[in-house]
Design a protein around this nucleic acid. Structure first.
Length: 492
RNA sequence: CGGGAAGUGGCGCAGCCCGGUAGCGCACCUGGUUUGGGACCAGGGGGCCGCAGGUUCGAAUCCUGUCUUCCCGACCA
C-alpha cells in the first residue's frame, strides 16, 4: 500500500488533502461539507483541547454547556450579529417525521409538526448565552462571569475544505461578562495572549496579534482581535479571535447589574474562540512532502520504536531493551509506541510514521545492540543519528524539546521572510502575485479602499498589528495620508 | 450557488465509445521463507459498478434525475 503524496509544488491543495486523508486525521463523510475526524486526528484535537482548557482554567474560567438550538428571535436581537450570520444558518422547522403514504418504508416531514418558532442550529452561542446571563447577573458581585464552552457549531458554507472550513466544526467559545469596559477589553486581550501562547508554544506556529478592521470584524463586536498565521503557500490563516463586544449583547438581551453605587448598568462582554481549523493550520505550516509533521508537545504519539531483527532470538533481545526504554520514556511523560507488528517491514513502518508525523523514531537492531546504540531519527529534519543506549531516554526527551523549538524557529523564519514592506501599488500587486505572504503597507483607513484592494488583488487586511509603530506615509491605493502600516494578505 | 472533472472490492485504476452479467496492482486471510528505507513464493476471501428511475430479452456500459468529492470562482472561521 504505497501512499503517494502529491508534492506541494505540484498541487498545494491536493498535498493538503493527501496529508489529512492519508495521514489519518480525517475522512469525508456522506454528509455534504461535513467530515469525520478519525482517531488520530481526534487524539491531536484532544491534546490541543486539553492544553487550552488548562490555560482557560488557569486564567479563572469555568466550563459550561448551552443548547445547540437557538430560537430565531434570539438571533434577531443584536442587529449586526443577525445580519452577519443570517446567510449561513441551518434551520429546524419541524420536529417529527411520518411514514410516506406513497412509498413503503419511506419517511417524510410531518407537516403537522411545524414549529411555531424556528430553531437555528448555533453558528455561535452569544445569543443563547446572553439570554441566560440575564438571569444570572444581578449585581457587580456576580461579575466577572467567566465561562467557556466546548461545542460543535454549524455554518452553512458554500465551499468546504477539510478542517479549514466545514459545515459543522468543533470549537471552544468563551463568553464573559464584566462590570467595566476596561475590564472587558483587558479580558479580550488576555485571551488573545492565551491563544498566541498556545499556538506558538504548543503548536510551534508563530502568530501575529492584531486588531481587525471594521470590515473584518465579528458580527456584533466593537473590536475583534486576532492571531494570524502564515501557511507554506503564502496565504494567511486566522488562527483565533477574541472580541470586545461592548454592551451590544447586554443591551440586546437586557443584561444589567447593580454597581457599587446602587445604579443599574448594562454589563460589558467579550467572546473568544478557536476551532478544529487550527489542525488545518498545523498541517499546512509544518507538513512536508513526506507527510505530516507533529509538534512534539501536542503530537498524538511522540516516539515510535521499530525493531529490526532476524529470527526470534534477536527479537527477544531487542524486546527486552525496548521495554526498559519504554518504561523510562513513559516515566518522563513521553508517549511511545513499540511497532513490532510482523506484517510490515521496517522500511514500510518508517514511511508510515513519517506520513503520520511522529516526531521521533527509534530503530533498534541486532547490530545496534552489539554496539549498545540505537538509530534515532527526527521527523522535522529527517536526520538520523546513532545514539548510545545509555541515557537514550533523556536524549530523546531533549530531542523532543529541540524539535519543538526547531519547528517554531523554522516557521518563524519563513513567516518573517514573508512579511514584505511595500510603498507602491505596483510593488504591492507584484509581491502578492509572486511571493505571497504578508504585505505591510500604508492604508488610508477607509472601508472603501479596503474593498477596492480586495476586488483587485483578493488580498484583505489581516490585521493592524498590536505593537504597530506609528509611521507617516501614503496609502498604497489612494495615496491619502496614513499613520501606520497594516498587514495585507490573501487568506484562507 | 455558477464553471470544469470524477465516483467500479479497503486504496489506486482498467473496462464504458461499440450493451451479453467485472478485471488488474496494492492491501486483506492461510502457510512458509523473510526483516538496517515501502520483502517474496504458494493458495484464498471480498464488488448493491455512488443512488434512483428509464430504454432493452439483457445495463458498469445508453438516457434522465439525484447525491458525494475534487479543482476554479462568488460568500465565510
Amino acid at each position: 500500500m504505497s501512499k503517494e503524496i502529491t508534492p506541494r509544488t505540484t498541487d498545494y491543495s491536493q498535498w493538503y488533502n493527501d496529508l489529512v486523508l492519508k495521514g489519518g486525521l480525517a475522512d469525508y463523510s456522506a454528509v455534504r461539507g461535513c467530515m469525520v475526524i478519525k482517531p488520530y486526528g481526534f487524539a491531536l484535537w484532544e491534546n490541543m483541547r486539553d492544553r487550552m482548557d488548562r490555560m482557560f482554567k488557569d486564567t479563572g474560567h469555568v466550563n459550561a454547556y448551552f443548547p445547540l438550538f437557538v430560537p430565531r428571535t434570539f438571533l434577531e436581537k443584536e442587529e449586526g450579529h443577525a445580519e452577519g450570520f443570517a446567510k449561513e444558518c441551518a434551520v429546524v422547522t419541524h420536529y417529527r417525521l411520518k411514514a410516506d403514504p406513497g412509498r413503503k418504508g419511506a419517511l417524510i416531514v410531518d407537516p403537522e409538526s411545524k414549529l411555531e418558532e424556528e430553531l437555528i442550529i448555533r453558528p455561535t452561542s452569544e445569543t443563547v448565552i446572553w439570554n441566560a446571563y440575564r438571569d444570572w447577573i444581578r449585581s457587580y458581585r456576580d461579575l466577572p462571569l467567566l465561562i467557556n464552552q466546548w461545542a460543535n457549531v454549524v455554518r452553512w458554507e458554500m465551499r468546504t475544505r477539510l478542517f479549514l472550513r466545514t459545515t459543522e466544526f468543533l470549537w471552544q467559545e468563551g463568553h464573559t461578562a464584566h462590570a467595566t469596559a476596561e475590564e472587558a477589553v483587558e479580558e479580550t486581550r488576555r485571551m488573545l495572549d492565551v491563544y498566541a501562547d498556545f499556538v506558538e508554544n504548543e503548536m510551534a506556529l508563530p502568530v501575529i496579534k492584531g486588531v481587525k478592521t471594521a470590515n473584518e470584524r465579528f458580527a456584533g463586536a466593537v473590536d475583534t482581535y486576532c492571531i494570524e498565521a502564515l501557511m507554506q503557500d503564502g496565504k494567511a490563516l486566522q488562527a483565533g479571535t477574541s472580541h470586545f463586544l461592548g454592551q451590544n449583547f447586554s443591551k440586546a438581551f437586557d443584561v444589567k447589574f447593580l454597581n457599587r453605587e446602587n445604579r443599574l448598568e448594562h454589563v460589558w462582554a467579550t467572546s473568544w474562540g478557536t476551532s478544529t481549523r487550527l489542525i488545518g493550520a498545523l498541517v499546512m505550516a509544518h507538513g512536508d512532502d513526506n507527510g505530516l509533521v507533529m509538534p512534539p508537545r501536542i503530537a498524538p504519539l511522540q516516539v515510535v520504536i521499530v525493531p529490526i531483527h532476524k529470527g526470534d532470538e534477536q527479537k527477544a533481545l531487542i524486546d527486552a531493551k525496548v521495554h526498559a526504554l519504554m518504561s523510562e520514556l513513559r516515566a518522563m511523560g513521553i508517549s511511545v509506541k513499540y511497532d513490532d507488528s510482523d506484517n510490515a517491514r521496517p522500511g514500510w513502518k518508517f514511511a508510515e510514521h513519517e506520513l503520520k508525523g511522529v516526531p521521533v523514531r527509534i530503530a533498534l537492531g541486532a547490530r545496534d545492540l552489539q554496539n549498545s546504540v540505537a538509530e534515532v531519527a527526527r521527523r522535522d529534519t529527517g536526520e538520523k543519528a546513532s545514539v548510545s543506549l545509555d541515557g537514550l531516554a533523556s536524549h530523546v526527551r531533549n530531542l523532543l524539546d529541540e524539535i519543538q523549538a526547531n519547528l517554531l524557529h523554522r516557521a518563524r523564519a519563513y513567516r518573517d521572510a514573508h512579511i514584505t514592506r511595500v510603498d507602491t501599488w505596483d510593488e504591492f500587486k507584484k509581491v502578492l502575485e509572486e511571493k505571497g505572504g504578508f504585505v505591510s503597507a500604508h492604508w488610508d483607513g477607509t472601508g472603501e479602499t479596503e474593498e477596492r484592494i480586495k476586488e483587485e488583488t483578493k488580498a484583505t487586511i489581516r490585521c493592524i498589528p498590536l505593537d504597530n509603530p506609528a509611521e507617516d506615509g501614503a496609502c498604497i491605493f489612494s495615496g491619502k495620508p496614513s499613520r501606520e502600516r497594516v498587514l495585507f494578505a490573501i487568506a484562507y
